[in-house]
Structure formats: C-alpha cells, structure tokens
Nucleic acid binder design. Sequence first.
DNA 1: ATTCATTTGTTCGTATGTATG
DNA 2: CCATACATACGAACAAATGAA
Lengths: 257, 257
Amino acid sequence: MTVEPSFPATARAVLQRRSGITIWKQIADTLAQEIRDRHYLASGCLPSETALATRFKVNRHTLRQALADLQAQGLLRIEQGRGAFVQSDWVDYTLARRTRYSENMLRNRLHPVRQMLAGREEAATSAVAQALGLRRGGRVLVAELLQMAGEQPLGLATMYFPAARFAGLLDRLAAGDTVTQALQALGVADYSRVRSRVTTLLPDEALARTLCQPRARPVLCVESVDADTEGRPVKYGLTQFSGDRVQLVVDTADLAA
Amino acid sequence: MTVEPSFPATARAVLQRRSGITIWKQIADTLAQEIRDRHYLASGCLPSETALATRFKVNRHTLRQALADLQAQGLLRIEQGRGAFVQSDWVDYTLARRTRYSENMLRNRLHPVRQMLAGREEAATSAVAQALGLRRGGRVLVAELLQMAGEQPLGLATMYFPAARFAGLLDRLAAGDTVTQALQALGVADYSRVRSRVTTLLPDEALARTLCQPRARPVLCVESVDADTEGRPVKYGLTQFSGDRVQLVVDTADLAA
DNA sequence: ATTCATTTGTTCGTATGTATG
DNA sequence: CCATACATACGAACAAATGAA
C-alpha cells in the first residue's frame, strides 16, 4: 500500500454540479493542479481509478473521462494494467561548469531558439560591477534574451558584459549569434560558469506575460557569473525560468572534493 | 543616473488616505513587497528618499518614516550620505559534492538546530526505489526533519534510506544524531551528493504552516541523491526550503571539465 | 587638497485627523 | 458639543556624510 500525501483545502472542495463546468472537467482541473504541485512526485503515478473515484465520489466512468482529458493535455500517460503515470514534460536545465542554453536544449531534444528583446549600454550598478570586477558606474552591455522551448518561452535572460572589452557584441547577438559564438569572435576562446545562485519568486505582471504563465505560478531565478579561461569575469546573468516548465539539475558527481 | 526597474500595477496603486492604515505604513508595505520580489537586486539599494517621495507623491518626512519602519523590520540598512541598502538576510545554502545541513548553517554563522517531526518505515514508491537502487516495494526508512535557522524554520527535509542496510537509523536520528553521524555509526564512512534537482512551487496550507510563511510565497524544492564512497545510494531526499529565506548556491568553479 | 552634487539627518513651523473624557 | 492630547502629514531650510570630478 502506498502512502499518499494529504491534499490542501482547495483540492478537497466539493464538486459543483450545474456550475457550467462538467464534473469530469472539474476533476481534471483539480488533478492537474495537484500534478503541477508535485503531489505525485514520490510515486510518479496517480492513485488507482477506483481510489480516485472513491475520493471524488463519482462513477469510475466519470473519473476515466477526467484522466483521458489529462492524457490529452499531455500531463499523464495511461498504461493498461499499470496505472496513470505523471508525464513530466519539464525541461532539465543543467547548471554545470559548462552551462550553455543551446546545449541544454539539445540535451532535452529541443531546438534552441531565442529572441533578443533588448540590447543597450548602461552604467553598472554595484551588484553588476562587483560581479564583473568593474568599478561602479563602469559601462556594461546589457542584452535581454527570451529563451524558447518549442512554442513556449522557457526563460528570460538578462546578461551583462563589460562594454570596454566587448564592443560590437550586441550587434552579433542581434544578428543571431549565440553567446558562445559572439564571445568567441571577440577573443574569448572559452568561458565557464563560476557560480550560480538560485532563488524563487512570483512574477510581476510584465514577467508573467513575457513567460506566458499565470502570475500565481512561481519562477526560478538564476543569478550567474561566467569567467574566461584566465578567470576574468566575462558575463553576469540573471535568468528567470518558468517554474512550471523548468527543473534545474545540479550534477555534483564529478565535482572535486 | 541609475536605471530603476518598472513597477507592477499593484505597486502603482494609489495610496488610500483615511483608510485606517497610515500613509507611511502603506508605503512601507509596498516597498517591503518589492524588496522580497527582488526589484532592487541589481543595485542592492533603494532609490533616494527624494525620488521615492516623488514616486509616492508624499513629503520626504512621510517617506522617511516608511524607511525607518523597514529598517526596524531588518529589511534595510540606511547609511547617511550613501543610501538605503537592502539587507539580504538570506541563508546561502550550498549544493556541492559535500552537502550537509549543519555545515551550511555554520557557514552562515547559524546554529544547526533541527527537529524530527516523523520517522517511519514504509514500502518504496517507484521514484524512491529507483533513486535508491531498490526494487519497487522494498522497505525504506523515512525521516521528516524540520531544519531551523535561528528562530525560524528554513526547510522541511523528507529523507529516505534503505531499511535493510540501515536498521536503527531512525532511533539515532531521533536521539539527536546528525545524518552524517547516524550513517557513520552504521558503517558509512562518508557519502556525497550525486545529483540535485531544483524546482519551485507554492506551498499547501500544511507546508506553509510548518515553514511559518505565507501561502502566497513560493518554496524551493530540492530533490537529491547521495551515495557512499563505493557509489551505492544511501539517501534520497526531498527538501522544501522557504523561498523567502533561502538562496541555493551552486559553485562550479572547481568542477572537473 | 578642493569643490561640487548627491543623499541622509535634523530642526523649525503648520495643519489635520483621531481618540479620550 | 467641546477641550485636550497625540500621532500623522506637509513644507522649507540647513547640517552632515559621501563620493566623484
């Protein structure tokens, strides 16, 4: 017997008949919310149909219609005789020494498509200056890139580069170069991630719209510093990932002791 | 001149006079929300008093009272002639090859205090079994530990151990042993983190209460696998950190290529 | 070393809304 | 209804600290 977690009050809410939303749809919505809230992470699958039918006090046919809807949405994969498995279509975004958006997309069998939303030069704020090893007020190039995963936006990356060293970088990015290509053209043979900091917050209206996600769903924020082979910082980044679509993976198996 | 970010609609809401909440308190609440939402991450400090007074259309005295309130709350540190600096009292929780709660607390100059909420033996669900290299249904020991940071809870850790190998482990944990100590007593000289996966979600009612945080603030979830020196998995963990108090740090500077 | 702009800290005064008796 | 006390809010001016030219 598997132990299932308890459900929040909202999920226990009584189903509304004659509300204009069919019972099976209400059940599907409830289960979809629970799947997104990782209630079934431990087992990876939903309780049996009979167990769910009992829980919602509906006939098993009604419940099966809800599950079929979830399968159509891609949230479930139902296998006869085995169960209904949660289909986590999350993008695994690996934070490693070599962290590249395009390589991460390819690992997930997705095409790395990005859209440059803005590019400008400005004075470095203290946090940016410190990360890049500049004096406060030093000039930095700023690029905002919307990173896509298939049809949907995955994350919004704001990147800062020392302006003095990388003149013309914004034009290359705008022309479609990847960050790696653009830096290579400007003399950076290779660069690697020094540190990443991960936090979470609820998006404001603008960010939610940009990421095509509800304001009520949190985003994952990654603050990062990359340096060239000589240890000089080349990029400071702030990326905001959709918390519904991204899972950050930290591989420490081959990290030095 | 520094570039300040745009504010969400809620922050632009007109202040309510004669609403029973004083103007300065309304301003303080608005700014506190923005601080928690990392609007001032880039610069690390708030705009000048005159700028904020202009923004809220109030006298500088009124605004100063709001800032004083925020400083009393510990969200700001105000320095004459310099500005109002955001006081990030976040706990930096490092995800590395050697990830230990107690060591992380000491790095943050905090006492590692934890509270064991539950301990039981159960059958492994498929995700747990896979992570620990057991067959599904194999017996696992489960421990729920509330990790504290000072007075406040920092995270709720649910840990799974192979029951056959670690008989008596729960008693040791209940007696106050750290995980490292308990495993050591049972023959595990050392163990290290293989992989961490980071996601985010909004807490349900029970989790919010356990972590002493509002339901409207997201939590950071870390799913982890640790293995002994021979590579055998010894622990599978699910930790839910308060997103308001924890920042996950991934150091890849000395990661092998 | 000096000057200057910026930013916080302080002290006057004035008006108003709120709570109390 | 009035008198009083107190906190709130606004305006102007000046002092002190900082940092950059």
